[in-house]
Design a protein around this nucleic acid. Structure first.
Lengths: 207, 207
DNA sequence: CTTTATTGATTGAACGTTCAATAAAAAAAT
DNA sequence: ATTTTTTTATTGAACGTTCAATCAATAAAG
């Protein structure tokens, strides 16, 4: 079976298998053998392509963060409206993108989040991603309110988004994306309305 | 050294040591030996008092949930004002109680949260606790707004509280409790103001 | 002398990693 | 076009480590 150019294929396969395994039994019991079985390959191949289990986990977290980043960027670039509300709305929508919220990605996300508390490599990835979200929100809010208030608004909305994610990952029935988006958008409207700018409520009932 | 009546002392000791170990190296590397060393006892004692590692972890999560519950209950019973805003405010304050937010408890909390996704015993504990918070919030909101809106408000505030917790546990500098409480109270004010009830803003700058 | 409390060496299972062996594909040589 | 050689891909058994659990031994207290 050995063909050339297997590396990118196997890497993707194993990253996907990692998410599937974590979704199935959790990070603690996602052994290399279980992951390999999901991908239909042997356990040894993981060390071959990722240098070891840690390398695979890091690559998997990178993938998830990249996917999220792309989902947000795509929606922001597709905007016709350049208003702060539109940009922040796109950030919300991107964070509750179907591919991110559904299935394996959500639980893997939370698992890595908890794991990053004590693994410097993952912590760094999480930190960079987090700062980017915060900086983006802050920048948009600053277009319609003073810096100090913009910072609070950004922290509040970031917490709201993460909280909805967290609760969705833990809820037995999974995240209700429509409801989560609605709550986040309503909160955004309140934050903006409080400063009397761009106060039309047209985006409140988008979902 | 063996004296009688050691059981309750050892149990508390070991639960505290578990939190310390998880705070130090994370749940994945919190071995029975490490926990025992923190408590200054041998590893075997854990199986003796808790039946095994799982029993100790369950007891530790129970302790955290009880502490949180007590912190909320204490503040609610101390209220002079019986208004919905006062009750919900007390719930917020209880959730950001110093003993909960500071040190080992916060990281242990998040570690168990992630772990509960795949451990039925912990999942059940988390679920019960979560439902109680939601039911309490819902009940208070329903005193000043229709059922459907109250549900949304409760879900939103619960997400905000959890999100602030989550971000606090992950932030290198830890949670800024004062800021978190301020954000949660401001959000609460907005939720209530939206319905024109109890609209004085006196509690917005409590902290 | 019985009960309660505790230890620490031992056991067996599970895990990640390594590596020699294998086999297909590609390249080179005939 | 066929054979030989090299490269790439993959396996799976073996190894060493780590861990939770067990239990006989020990010792203080009642």
């Amino acid at each position: 079976m050995p063909k050339v150019g297997m590396e990118p294929i196997r890497r993707q396969q194993l990253i996907k298998a990692t998410m599937a395994a974590i979704d199935e039994v959790g990070l603690a019991e996602a052994t290399v053998m279980r992951i390999a079985r999901h991908a239909g390959v042997s356990a040894g191949i993981i060390s071959h392509y990722f240098g070891g289990k840690d390398g695979l986990l890091e690559a998997t977290m990178r993938q998830i963060l990249t996917d999220l980043s792309d989902a947000v960027a795509a929606r922001r670039h597709a905007l016709e409206d350049d208003s702060p509300r539109a940009h922040i709305g796109a950030i919300i929508e991107g964070n509750f993108d179907r591919t991110q919220v559904t299935g394996p990605a959500a639980k893997t996300w939370l698992a890595f989040w908890a794991s990053s508390m004590h693994k410097p490599v993952l912590q760094r990835l999480q930190y960079v991603n987090d700062r980017r979200l915060y900086a983006n929100l802050c920048h948009q809010f600053q277009r319609v309110m003073p810096r100090a208030e913009a910072r609070n608004a950004a922290r509040g909305l970031a917490a709201m988004i993460d909280g909805l994610w967290l609760r969705g990952a833990l809820a037995p029935e999974g995240l209700d994306a429509a409801e989560a988006r609605h709550l986040a958008h309503t909160y955004l409207d309140q934050l903006l309305k409080h400063y009397g700018c761009y106060q039309d409520a047209s985006s409140a009932d988008v979902y």
